[in-house]
Design a protein around this nucleic acid. Structure first.
Length: 929
RNA sequence: GGGUGUUUAGCUCAGUCCGGGAGAGCGAUGGCCUUACAAGCCAUAGGUCGUAGGUUCGAUCCCUACAACACCCA
């Protein structure tokens, strides 16, 4: 882009962002420099066939800001990228495609099915990486990995085999979350529980033999939300302290509808207040009951098939029934036999498979497990010792709590897409584990004529992702990358996967590398919509980050939000809400504005509300920077830095402020306070550089008679501070800063072909300048005071007014003389005079700046009454403040106990307020009546 | 039932390890097309900092209890 184009028009993100990314990528600017201290972030791998949602955009923006900052600060940075094979969700998508073609995966067979998934992966796997590029993510694409690629798969097999050899992986029959539709085990994360309307059935269990409760009943009443599971009951439990049932402990009841007798046992877990205080125990179909069952050595009677129909362990009439038909039949039969005590409506938490939406059934199945306890100890220790630090710190508590209650980890899934478990079976179901079948045979000295069959299960996705930091760096080979970049420096992720991913990475990495996977864990909250609601497809309030970048019309947005709804009846409501919130659709705000917004909302809290108005505000901020640069360039054409120059007070001031900005931003980046970082940048650019510094330079630059040394000083500073500002902001807003930087860099003596190759600003050449700061602070206050009077009296900006000063200190007098020209220009003052306050003939509006009295004389009579109001208002304010301060000073305790500097400050304040009060009263009395 | 977090201007949020009478953006109101920017400039209004106690000379900040909301676990 040429200067000419830049000097025209306003900020248009589309025009500048398009080609820049390709340029960076092609020039290899994202690759590690190979010089300096290493700094590495491993990206949480998104689903390979997924699309970018706001949460990704958010976390990746923060990671990119960190990486760009570190890269500029001279680190050898690697942002390791890659994607996850996302077992279940990917398999489901492809299954549906195949079904749509009128086939079933079973007909296709495993090999062809997996080939189809690879096809789909190659076809659609590029979407999310394309979107990441659009957001400006500076990941090293040359090192992109995939959890199913050859090298990573080798790491997965290696880990499985070693854990098996060490006795930390075993196969066993345990209770797991079972999805009867997908016919696979699910992790807790893949199960979503929500409250739904249901019932609580109270069922009578008659005692076996002549037994009575203390109340004289010949039966116990148990309450359950799932009556059909009673067929698998193996006990009834009561609290050992429950007086009502002490006498029946150890006795039995006849389990209705069956010919089984079950025992009455005592367990602390039972809540005496709930229902009748009797709890039916179904160890094979409830996680809590399973624990109780294990404690008491109860039988586990599994009554369901893998399709959740009643199996041969249930009484014949119910066999083959679906679990809900079974429930109806059982309730009816209980009622018929008079054993149904009562039914009440009840809100039940229903667990559903995240992908299939099927109701999950706790089911006893034969699965592979990791024995987590031995791994967890060390994982807790490294966090306790500070080798890994959570930011914000309080998440460590959650981590510790989870680790204390850690259960064995079910790692097998009955799926085809994923890492097939490296275990083989002979005809007697003996297990042989090895990196290959050959190895497994050799280890067991198997004769070649024994036929082995490989385990058909795959490992769950989290198993492979737990190896992410070291697997991507080449482990198990001893690579240079692993030695250089591991442990990685920081992990940026959401609190929802601290246990599923973060904790497991820590455990696995410690086990296999003897290192922590990362030194810091920055936990982000969840992005919600403007009203604080969770963004979701069903609620129809989701936002596609790229729509915020490139814009979308209202019809397009509605179409997107109502497409493929699971509940089509929601469409109308979603459309209405969308039209209300986005009457004109979404404007193209650009990647920088979105990135800046995401940083600005990233305060240390659990949730952030993403308000499009805010993005618009930061889009305007981009425009502000754009125009400021236009201004600077227009006034610095052909500027030569070697020209003799003299810095003005304003130049010295903005350089001193620039120093503060750099310090603030560095501190903010180092402490992960992206919100403060964005705020500092915004305030500096808008309210210091643009509002004041540019305005302060104009009188000088536009003055043909001004000294060329001073003009050169101003141009020098305009360019220098702008160039430094662009560098300072680059990690958050890479596109606009690079574009503008290329226009100003050479004028400030920078020769790099890209801002990405420049060093992050340091404060070395920028002295802190208290004199300039107090000088310009005074000027700002005085100008603002005069503008305040002008505003209140609605004096047109075109009209210059005379201003009188009086009662100030000699310092005020010096400053006013020094700054007179600027002051008159900025406040539209025709003439500035000092009076000794004796001029009683001319009255006017008064503002006080500390001890200095500033008067703008009246021109007509009706201004006088409004001035009286203004003074009265001001007096009220001063009185209120004075009362507070004086109360403090009259308090003996305060004067004695508070630190002397605080007391002194209060005395000064009281002094100032009193003198202001006198001046104002004096002024009011002088107003003509 | 247990745990964590939140509660500050009409709205969305800052207010930092370290207590000394609270800030921004948006919105609202009034005035300006002032030669970088109307996507802008200048000014104004508004808050017993969730409630009740406690600690302290002094509490938005520290402690306790309670309430509401959110999330996690059961």
């Amino acid at each position: 882009m040429s200067n000419k184009q830049l000097l025209q028009g306003s900020f248009d993100p589309k025009a500048i962002e398009a080609d820049l990314y390709a340029e960076w990528e092609q020039n290899g600017y994202f690759d590690p420099s190979g010089e300096g201290k290493s700094f590495c972030i491993a990206i949480p791998p998104p689903n390979v066939t997924g699309t970018l949602h706001v949460g990704h955009a958010f976390q990746q923006t923060l990671m990119d800001a960190i990486i760009r900052y570190r890269r500029m600060a001279g680190f050898d940075t690697l942002w390791q990228t890659g994607t996850d094979h996302a077992g279940i969700s990917t398999q489901m998508v492809v299954t549906e495609q195949i079904r749509a073609e009128g086939q079933s995966p079973a007909e296709l067979g495993r090999k062809k099915f997996v080939d189809r998934v690879w096809e789909w992966k190659n076809e659609s796997g590029g979407t999310i990486t394309r979107q990441m590029r659009r957001m400006g993510a500076s990941v090293d694409w040359s090192r992109e990995r995939f959890t199913m690629d050859e090298g990573f798969s080798r790491a997965v097999t290696e880990v499985f085999v070693r854990l098996y050899e060490d006795g930390l992986i075993y196969k066993g029959t345990r209770l797991v979350n079972w999805d009867p539709e997908l016919k696979t085990a699910l992790s807790d994360l893949e199960v979503v529980s929500e409250s739904e309307d249901g019932h609580l059935w109270h069922i009578k269990y008659p005692f076996a033999g002549n037994v009575r409760t203390s109340a004289g009943d010949s039966y116990l009443v148990v309450a359950t939300t799932r009556p059909e599971t009673m067929l698998g009951d193996t006990a009834v439990a009561v609290n050992p302290n429950d007086e009502r049932y002490k006498s029946v402990l150890g006795k039995s009841v006849d389990l209705p509808l069956t010919d089984r007798k079950i025992q009455i046992i005592a367990d602390e877990h039972v809540d005496m207040e709930f229902g009748t205080g009797c709890l039916k125990i179904t160890p094979a179909h409830d996680f809590d009951d399973n624990d109780i069952g294990l404690r008491h050595g109860l039988d586990q009677v599994n009554i369901f098939t893998t399709s959740a129909t009643l199996n041969e362990n249930s009484p014949r009439p119910y066999q083959g029934m679906d679990r809900f038909d079974g429930r109806r039949a059982i309730v009816r039969d209980l009622e018929d036999s008079g054993l149904l005590d009562s039914v009440e409506p009840y809100s039940v938490k229903i667990p559903r498979g995240e992908r299939s939406n099927a109701i999950v059934e706790p089911l006893l199945t034969n699965q592979w497990f990791v024995d987590v306890k031995p791994l967890a100890e060390k994982a807790v220790q490294v966090v306790r010792e500070g080798l890994i630090e959570f930011v914000p710190k309080h998440w460590e508590n959650l981590y510790f709590a989870w680790m204390r209650e850690v259960r064995d980890w079910c790692i097998s899934r009955q799926q085809w897409w994923g890492h097939q478990i490296p275990a083989w079976y002979d005809s007697e179901q003996n297990i042989y584990v090895g990196r290959t079948e050959d190895e497994a045979r050799k280890k067991a000295n198997l004769s070649p004529d024994i036929v082995l069959e490989r385990d058909s299960d795959v490992l769950e996705t989290w198993f492979s992702s737990s190896l992410w930091t070291f697997g991507t760096l080449g482990w198990p080979e001893d690579t240079r990358e692993f030695r250089t970049y591991h442990p990685t420096d920081v992990l940026v992720t959401g609190h929802d996967i601290i246990f599923f991913w973060v904790a497991r990475m820590i455990m696995m990495t410690l086990r296999f590398t003897n290192e922590v996977p990362f030194k810091k864990v920055y936990i982000t909250g969840l992005i919600r919509d403007a009203e604080g609601k969770k963004m979701s497809k069903t609620a129809g309030n989701g936002l596609d980050p790229l729509d915020l970048v490139d814009g979308i019309g209202i019809e397009g947005l509605i179409e997107k939000r109502t497409r493929d709804l699971t509940q089509p009846r929601m469409a109308q409501r979603i459309e209405r809400a969308t039209r209300r919130d986005f009457p004109k659709g979404i404007k193209p705000y650009g990647a920088d504005a979105l990135r800046f917004t995401l940083c600005a909302i990233a305060s240390p809290t659990d949730n952030y509300n993403l308000d499009v108005n805010r993005i618009e505000g930061y889009h305007f901020f981009c425009n502000k920077i754009w125009h400021a640069t236009k201004f600077v360039l227009a006034n610095c054409k052909g500027f030569d830095r070697s020209n003799p120059k003299k810095l003005s007070m304003a130049d010295r001031w903005i350089r001193s402020r620039m120093r503060t900005l750099i310090e603030d931003c560095i501190r903010a980046f180092e402490t992960y306070r992206f919100d403060l970082c964005a705020k500092h940048m915004y305030d500096f650019v808008w309210h210091e550089y643009c509002d004041w510094y540019l305005e302060l330079t104009k009188p000088l630059i536009y003055d043909d008679l001004a000294s060329s040394d001073l003009k050169n000083g101003a141009r020098y500073t305009l360019l220098e501070v702008l160039e430094l500002t662009l560098r300072t902001m680059h990690p958050i807003m890479p596109f606009i800063t690079e574009t503008l930087w290329k226009q100003v860099a050479a004028l400030n003596g920078r020769r790099s072909p890209s801002l990405m190759l420049e060093h992050y600003p340091t404060t070395e050449d920028l002295p802190s300048d208290p004199q300039a700061e107090s000088n310009i602070d005074w000027l700002k206050k005085v100008v603002t005071a005069i503008r305040n009077i002008r505003g209140e009296r609605q004096i047109s900006p075109k009209r210059n007014v005379p201003v009188e000063m009086s009662e100030g200190s000699t310092q005020d007098r010096h400053l006013s003389e020094y700054n007179e020209a600027l002051l008159c220009k900025l406040a539209h003052v025709s003439e500035l005079t000092w009076t000794n306050g004796a001029n009683k003939d001319r009255t006017g509006s008064v503002q006080l700046v500390n001890g200095l009295k500033i008067t703008v004389p009246f021109v007509d009579a009706d201004e006088i009454s409004s001035e009286r109001n203004r003074i009265n208002k001001e007096l009220t304010r001063i009185d209120k403040e004075l009362i507070g301060v004086e109360a403090k000073l009259n308090n003996e305790n305060f004067v004695q106990k508070a630190p002397p500097n605080i007391v002194e400050a209060q005395r000064d304040k009281a002094e100032t307020l009193r003198s202001q009060r006198i001046t104002l009263e004096d002024q009011a009395s002088q107003l003509p009546t």
